[in-house]
Write a protein that binds this DNA or RNA. Structure first.
Lengths: 224, 224
DNA sequence: ACTGATAGAAATGTCGGACATTATTGTCAG
DNA sequence: CTGACAATAATGTCCGACATTTCTATCAGT
């Protein structure tokens, strides 16, 4: 049978990866709500894959922590409890703090000073205070960039698994102007510490920054 | 067909888990060397599972980082490069350090002071200096125990994935008496810091301890 | 009407076979 | 000895079947 010709030029060579990516997208966009059950028979009807392949996709998604698999009870979109969220942000505090420290250590080798200076300018401007979407759109790249500067791929992929799956919109709503102001200030301080090559301070500031985000996340409504 | 009745009372309910556990055991005991290819057809002959189930086991092992899966090239036991090892110990330095800090913070709530005091006595005794096996057998539980005291299950499972898969024996051989002496001293210092409820110091000491182990691990022969 | 047992339906876990696709190997002409 | 090419081996995917387990709706009894 002709293998799907749809995935033109994408890196997803296996059908299971395609299916996993599609389900991931549906989860992140809210089509699949946290706690919702994923019935194999239903998804087979929606995705061009067989049961075996779908089950493989389930395993990959479960490995990424996006869904949960229970024996003889199938798959469901992962539902966060407040305790889970606390643990998650504790991990991020630890890892991103360390990433900031490593980034500060390696700042000389990197020509990414330029990039950091550009980011700094962004967080000094008013856009990130006025517009919550602009704020968010610049927030993720900044954190990712600092993590990338740390130069540890394991660290990078570990942190990728710690992004909140389906609650981003609800988190966004919690960021009022006051919150955005504090956040922007912290970002600038972190950038300065990294640029100055001060690992200890960079780590300390990043930890405080992530901890604050974690406390804010606890206010997300509708958590189990 | 009658499902295998062998797994009496173990928590491994799914056949895929049984197969994964068996393969994991073979890797850790050295029957399967790093880099060795795992042919589906061969393993089907050795394990009482079908191809589908075996492939599921592969996915789980890959998620744990024990094997690597390449498209159209199957599975092979993960081979560590020195760079991989460096990243791995960097992660452990970060996470275990943080775990020590958390443990020190929560020491009052835990009645595990007793446990720590017992561990302290062990590391003051001569057994852990004289016998490399005794050293190792007490090392893992101590680290695990401190991580458990941190009370973050994510942290716990993240660290479980960072254990060296098949190189433990070779690492063990690097621990001569001098190394063991330093290690024991560091353990005692860490325990004292946790008992004293000093998170900052506990983290600092644990980081130094893990970093030292990482530098030692770089001496493991036969790495890619 | 409510509760609990029970039979039926629904969904998952596992198996075996089949075939397409791709990687590896071995052969042969030059 | 090298490069093209055919043969082999191994993986990726699909399909259908059945056992096992969970879920559900019905029904008897208090």
């Amino acid at each position: 049978m002709k293998l799907r010709e749809s995935n033109q030029a994408d890196g997803l060579r296996k059908a299971a990866d395609v299916a996993a990516a599609e389900i991931r997208r549906q989860i992140q966009e809210g089509f699949l709500a946290p706690g919702q059950r994923l019935i194999e028979a239903e998804l087979i009807g929606q995705l061009p894959v067989s049961r075996s392949t779908l089950r493989e996709a389930f395993l990959k998604l479960a490995a990424d922590g996006l869904i949960e698999l229970q024996h003889q009870r199938g798959a469901c979109v992962r539902r966060m409890t407040r305790a889970d969220l606390a643990e998650l942000f504790q991990m991020r505090e630890c890892l991103e703090g360390y990433a900031a420290a490593l980034a500060a250590q390696r700042i000389k080798q990197h020509s990414s000073r330029v990039w950091l200076l550009e980011a700094r300018a962004v967080w000094l401007a008013d856009d990130v205070l006025d517009n919550e979407l602009t704020h968010m759109e610049n927030n993720v790249p900044l954190h990712d960039g600092i993590v990338a500067m740390a130069g540890n791929k394991r660290l990078q992929s570990a942190l990728k698994l710690l992004e909140l799956p389906g609650y981003r919109l609800q988190f966004l709503r919690l960021l009022d102007r006051a919150q955005r102001t504090v956040s922007a200030r912290q970002h600038i301080d972190i950038i300065d510490a990294v640029l100055a090559g001060k690992p200890v301070q960079a780590e300390k500031l990043m930890r405080a920054h992530v901890r604050r985000a974690g406390e804010l996340a606890q206010l997300i409504p509708g958590l189990a």
